[in-house]
């Protein structure tokens, strides 16, 4: 994986996670399925990238976690947005909006 791609993906993944949690708390698989759902299957998040991201974001203070039970009484860790996380989502959304607009314009100009 090239470095710039990692960065892009990481930023994107963070945003996806923040977005998917904006409706309420969820466990790991739930987040993964939710991202699949809101991107209509474009993004499939594997545990190998999901979990590091979740923990990093928790360390950053964007997410908080607690143990709970899944629908079938399995023990699972649930994540939710913190106030900082919500603010981060706003910032990211805004930034992403600017970037995508800029890129779109750039591509149009070339075309």
């Amino acid at each position: 994986m090239a470095p710039d791609q990692t960065n892009l993906l990481q930023g994107t993944l963070d945003m996806m996670i923040l977005k998917s949690l904006s409706t309420g708390e969820m466990h790991g698989l739930g987040i993964s399925r939710r991202i699949e759902q809101i991107t209509r299957g474009t993004f499939q998040v594997k545990p190998g990238s999901l979990f590091p991201a979740l923990h990093r974001m928790e360390e950053e203070g964007w997410l908080a976690s607690s143990w709970g039970e899944s629908e079938n009484n399995r023990r699972a860790k649930y994540y939710r947005l913190t106030k900082t996380g919500r603010r981060q989502l706003d910032t990211e959304t805004e930034r992403w909006g600017k970037i995508s607009l800029a890129i779109a314009r750039a591509l149009e100009a070339e075309g």
Binding site: H27, G28, L29, P47, F51, S70, R74, R75, A76, K77
Partner: peptide, 16 residues
């Protein structure tokens, strides 16, 4: 914690 979390993930995935 991580261990329990990842195993829990696998179990829920299997149920699905």
């Amino acid at each position: 914690d991580i261990d329990a979390e990842v195993r829990g993930y696998a179990e829920i995935l299997a149920e699905e």
